[in-house]
Design a protein around this nucleic acid. Structure first.
Lengths: 330, 330
DNA sequence: TTGTATGCGTTATCAG
DNA sequence: CTGATAACGCATACAA
């Protein structure tokens, strides 16, 4: 491994001069700088970031902890984060908590121990604790759900999205809607269910809601329970695309057809949604933009620690994308 | 930030003793150890990994560089890697090269500079250069495609899978097959195309092959070109699920229906494949297992550097999952 | 502007 | 078995 001192020796200068020319903060004689660059190229020197990080007590890396890497919403967020982070000179490491608070906590510990510059997280639970990170001076931005700590947060307007979806269903003549949502206690799951309930209640209809884990298996189980009811629902509002996969599996299993037998709207626009038959109407979150905004908030927090302006909540409006799974063709 | 010396002071011992009890290698008096643990708990001490890494000249982190985080194959691989890495005490950071050799190279540089313990990569190009990593003593395992360097590699048998898929199409009576595959030069793209060609040629049929980038947009463009041919194909073999999305979009746009108008088989089993109408027949790679195997190979390389046994290629057999998109119903 | 010397927090060596 | 102390590779305060 070639070190700073090797470059210094080759260039005939001190390590301080090499460090200075490479970091570009202080002024250094152009000629010496040229010799340094020549030596760097010659030896193919690359700074040891772990040494630099130790000395600077800061890294150039972010951690992005998401609840589900296989969820298109999360991967779109990841790209949004990545693009602005990279532009600002940061690398982002993606960590998958798998909706498991234990796994999440482990990644938080590693992130702290590795002294990441900042962290963006879609919390696995409302109790997810980033207090240690904050205590260690590592700024945190929450995404999709809030944290117990007062950190900058980026969310979509779940209530508005869910209300729009439910009303859309009713506007197409369906009369017995049900909601398949995430676990009780999960912010987005609760908000989407609450908005669904409010719309349904206002119309004097029954409030059918199933809370299940945010996985395909959960969606399938919820759909099965609902469809086994004495008076099964005639349309479904599903709170995310992972659940939707499970719901669709169950419908398929029972030979039920969208449009003919059942109306459907889901939260999140997955790449496969427009390909189904009929194509699925969704409430799309601007996931890429949300990731980008989260990254910008983190950047701001890195620039000015404890900046009050960076503690609010940025709310994005989801957008109804009509495609056909709500039409009553049967 | 609480440091080792703070713990030592609180426990009334030397830093060496604290370090030893925490790392558990050397023997230390049980009573002192108890005092140390008490102090650690009291102060809520957490080791600074960047200092440890500098001193040990090694980290406990792996980098996993994939070409496309939104591809279900890649995310399944990631989980396989993660599970065995975690079990062995390593953390894995996921990096997204986006099929872009430049972005990939940047991540490789960061991984080297951050002195990751090891790296697993699905190369964005056959020229992807991990020479520096290897030179720095960082073991590398390639996945899905080979690298120019002789490192342990995990792949699926693309040729066998593609041949099976093509034969399956022909066995169902389709007579003018075409292949939509990744860019020429990409190993999997070429192998799948070659196997397709071999089967088709053996049957005396035309060799219709489209090479496009491994994105949905590429798949759509390829499908459009093929369907605009004077004698368009009557069935398609698609080389991965991202391409398949685009192909299906294009079919939808043209009002063509699977089974009735066109047969289809794709590589990779995506969660949405069984939900299409008709459900899509696929050649499934055991992605999770492949990721796990890659991790095991990395573990082996970490245990014994330059072990010759860790330089071979592990080949997994893909499995045909029949679902209906090849049946001629029209 | 340049060089010397110190310290970032740990681990590991070497006496005791 | 324990404790002082020297690295690990780099950045910077300070002196020149």
């Amino acid at each position: 491994m070639v070190r700073l001192v090797d470059v210094a020796r080759a260039a005939g200068v001190s390590v301080a001069t090499v460090s200075r020319t490479l970091n570009g903060n202080a002024r250094v004689d152009p000629e010496l700088a040229a010799r340094v660059h020549a030596a760097v190229a010659e030896l193919d020197y690359r700074p040891n970031l772990v040494a630099r990080n130790l000395r600077r007590r800061a890294t150039q890396a972010w951690a992005l902890v998401v609840t589900d890497v296989t969820n298109p919403f999360c991967t779109a967020v990841a790209r949004g984060v990545e693009d602005v982070a990279n532009a600002a000179g940061y690398s982002v490491f993606l960590c998958n908590s798998d909706e498991d608070p234990g796994k999440e906590q482990r990644y938080l510990a590693v992130a702290e121990a590795e002294r990441v510059a900042g962290l963006i997280i879609t919390p696995a639970s409302p109790a997810s604790d980033v207090g240690r990170l904050l205590g260690a001076g590592i700024p945190v931005v929450a995404l999709d759900r809030h944290l117990p700590q007062p950190v900058a947060t980026v969310v979509a307007d779940s209530a508005a999205g869910a209300a729009t979806a439910t009303e859309h269903l009713l506007a197409h003549g369906w009369r017995r809607p049900a909601c398949v949502t995430g676990p009780a206690g999960a912010e987005t799951a609760d908000q989407r269910a609450a908005a669904f309930r409010a719309v349904v209640r206002r119309c004097g209809l029954a409030e059918l809601v199933e809370h299940v884990p945010y996985h395909a298996a959960g969606g399938a189980a919820a759909a099965a329970r609902l469809l086994d009811l004495p008076q099964p629902p005639d349309c479904l509002f599903v709170a995310n695309s992972a659940l939707a996969i499970g719901v669709l599996e169950e419908l398929r299993r029972r030979g039920l057809r969208l449009g003919a037998d059942l109306g459907l709207v889901t939260f999140d626009d997955a790449p496969w949604a427009p390909l189904m038959d009929p194509p699925i109407t969704v409430v799309a979150q601007p996931a890429y933009e949300m990731g980008g905004r989260a990254a910008e908030l983190l950047l701001a927090a890195l620039g000015s620690p404890a900046e009050p302006a960076t503690r609010g909540t940025a709310v994005f409006e989801p957008r109804l994308v009509e495609r056909g799974s709500c039409l009553r063709s049967g």
